[in-house]
Measured scan of single mutants.
Amino acid sequence: KTVEVNGVKYDFDNPEQAREMAERIAKSLGLQVRLEGDTFKIE
């Protein structure tokens, strides 16, 4: 899975870890996480 923030992509081998990281980043920035294919987009 991939986490994308402001056009910057971070790859994770563990999908659960990617989801947790995406949620943590989104919460700290006051944004939403949206799953698009294999990418968690933070917008």
Rank of each mutant, 00 (worst) to 15 (best):
K1V: 12
K1Y: 15
K1F: 15
K1H: 14
K1S: 11
K1C: 15
K1G: 08
T2L: 07
T2S: 14
T2R: 13
T2D: 03
T2N: 07
T2E: 04
T2G: 05
T2K: 12
T2H: 14
T2V: 12
T2W: 13
V3R: 02
V3K: 01
V3P: 01
V3E: 00
V3H: 02
V3Y: 02
V3C: 13
V3W: 02
V3L: 05
E4D: 08
E4C: 15
E4T: 09
E4K: 05
E4R: 06
E4W: 13
E4F: 11
E4Y: 10
V5L: 11
V5N: 02
V5K: 03
V5H: 11
V5R: 01
V5M: 09
V5E: 02
V5S: 03
V5I: 13
N6M: 14
N6T: 03
N6R: 07
N6H: 12
N6P: 01
N6V: 04
N6Y: 12
N6D: 09
N6S: 06
N6K: 05
N6A: 09
G7T: 02
G7M: 04
G7S: 04
G7Q: 02
G7R: 03
G7I: 03
G7K: 05
G7W: 02
G7E: 01
G7V: 03
G7P: 01
V8D: 05
V8F: 10
V8I: 12
V8M: 09
V8G: 03
V8N: 07
V8P: 01
V8Y: 10
K9P: 04
K9A: 08
K9G: 04
K9M: 08
K9F: 10
K9V: 11
K9I: 10
K9E: 05
K9D: 04
K9Q: 09
K9H: 07
K9T: 09
Y10C: 15
Y10V: 07
Y10F: 12
Y10I: 11
Y10H: 08
Y10S: 03
Y10N: 01
Y10Q: 03
Y10E: 01
Y10L: 10
Y10P: 02
D11C: 15
D11Q: 14
D11N: 14
D11S: 14
D11A: 14
D11P: 11
D11H: 15
D11W: 15
D11T: 14
D11K: 14
F12D: 00
F12Y: 09
F12M: 04
F12I: 04
F12G: 01
F12V: 04
F12P: 03
F12K: 00
F12H: 02
D13Y: 06
D13G: 09
D13W: 05
D13T: 10
D13V: 10
D13H: 08
D13L: 10
D13I: 09
D13A: 12
N14A: 07
N14P: 06
N14L: 09
N14G: 07
N14I: 07
N14Q: 08
N14V: 07
N14S: 13
N14F: 12
N14H: 08
N14Y: 09
N14W: 09
N14T: 14
N14R: 07
P15V: 11
P15H: 13
P15T: 12
P15I: 12
P15F: 14
P15E: 13
P15A: 13
P15G: 08
E16N: 10
E16L: 11
E16Q: 13
E16P: 02
E16F: 11
E16Y: 09
E16M: 11
E16W: 11
Q17A: 13
Q17L: 13
Q17Y: 08
Q17G: 06
Q17W: 10
Q17T: 09
Q17N: 09
Q17F: 08
Q17D: 13
Q17V: 10
Q17P: 02
A18W: 06
A18M: 04
A18L: 07
A18Q: 01
A18I: 05
A18T: 01
A18D: 01
A18E: 00
R19H: 06
R19P: 00
R19S: 04
R19M: 07
R19E: 04
R19L: 10
R19G: 02
R19D: 00
E20C: 15
E20Y: 07
E20F: 06
E20A: 14
E20K: 13
E20N: 09
E20R: 14
E20Q: 13
E20M: 12
M21T: 09
M21K: 03
M21L: 10
M21P: 00
M21H: 08
M21I: 10
M21A: 12
M21W: 15
M21R: 04
M21E: 08
A22S: 03
A22W: 05
A22T: 00
E23V: 10
E23T: 07
E23A: 08
E23S: 08
E23I: 12
E23N: 11
E23F: 12
E23W: 07
R24D: 06
R24T: 08
R24S: 10
R24K: 13
R24E: 07
R24L: 10
R24I: 10
R24Y: 10
R24P: 00
I25R: 00
I25F: 07
I25K: 00
I25D: 01
I25E: 02
I25L: 11
I25C: 15
I25H: 02
I25V: 09
I25Y: 05
I25M: 09
A26V: 03
A26C: 14
A26K: 00
A26P: 00
A26H: 01
A26D: 00
A26W: 03
A26Q: 02
A26L: 06
A26E: 00
A26F: 04
K27Q: 11
K27W: 04
K27I: 11
K27D: 09
K27E: 13
K27C: 15
K27N: 11
K27P: 00
K27A: 12
K27R: 12
K27F: 04
S28A: 14
S28N: 10
S28P: 00
S28I: 14
S28W: 14
S28L: 14
S28H: 14
S28K: 14
S28Y: 14
S28Q: 13
S28C: 15
L29P: 01
L29W: 03
L29D: 02
L29S: 05
L29E: 03
L29H: 09
L29K: 04
L29N: 04
L29Q: 05
G30P: 00
G30A: 02
G30F: 01
G30C: 15
G30V: 00
G30D: 05
G30Y: 00
G30M: 03
G30N: 07
G30S: 02
G30W: 01
L31F: 07
L31C: 15
L31A: 13
L31T: 06
L31N: 01
L31Q: 07
L31D: 02
L31K: 05
Q32M: 13
Q32Y: 08
Q32H: 12
Q32I: 14
Q32N: 11
Q32R: 09
Q32D: 08
Q32T: 14
Q32C: 15
V33R: 00
V33E: 01
V33D: 00
V33P: 02
V33W: 12
V33S: 03
V33A: 05
V33C: 15
V33T: 03
V33H: 01
V33I: 12
V33N: 00
R34D: 04
R34E: 04
R34Q: 08
R34W: 08
R34S: 08
R34F: 11
R34M: 08
L35A: 06
L35M: 11
L35F: 08
L35W: 09
L35D: 03
L35P: 01
L35Q: 09
L35H: 06
L35Y: 11
L35I: 13
E36S: 06
E36G: 05
E36D: 13
E36V: 14
E36M: 06
E36T: 05
E36F: 07
E36A: 07
E36R: 03
G37Y: 03
G37A: 04
G37P: 00
G37N: 10
G37E: 08
G37S: 02
G37R: 02
G37M: 03
D38W: 01
D38E: 08
D38M: 03
D38V: 01
D38S: 05
D38I: 03
D38R: 03
D38C: 14
D38G: 09
D38K: 03
D38A: 03
D38T: 07
D38Q: 04
T39M: 09
T39E: 07
T39H: 06
T39Y: 06
T39C: 15
T39K: 06
T39D: 05
T39R: 06
T39P: 00
T39Q: 04
F40L: 14
F40V: 08
F40N: 05
F40Q: 04
F40C: 11
F40D: 04
F40R: 05
K41H: 14
K41C: 15
K41L: 14
K41F: 15
K41P: 05
K41S: 04
K41M: 12
I42F: 10
I42N: 03
I42Q: 02
I42C: 15
I42H: 03
I42W: 00
I42R: 00
I42T: 05
I42S: 03
I42E: 05
I42G: 02
I42P: 05
E43C: 15
E43V: 14
E43M: 11
E43W: 08
E43P: 02
E43Y: 13
E43K: 05
E43Q: 09
E43R: 03
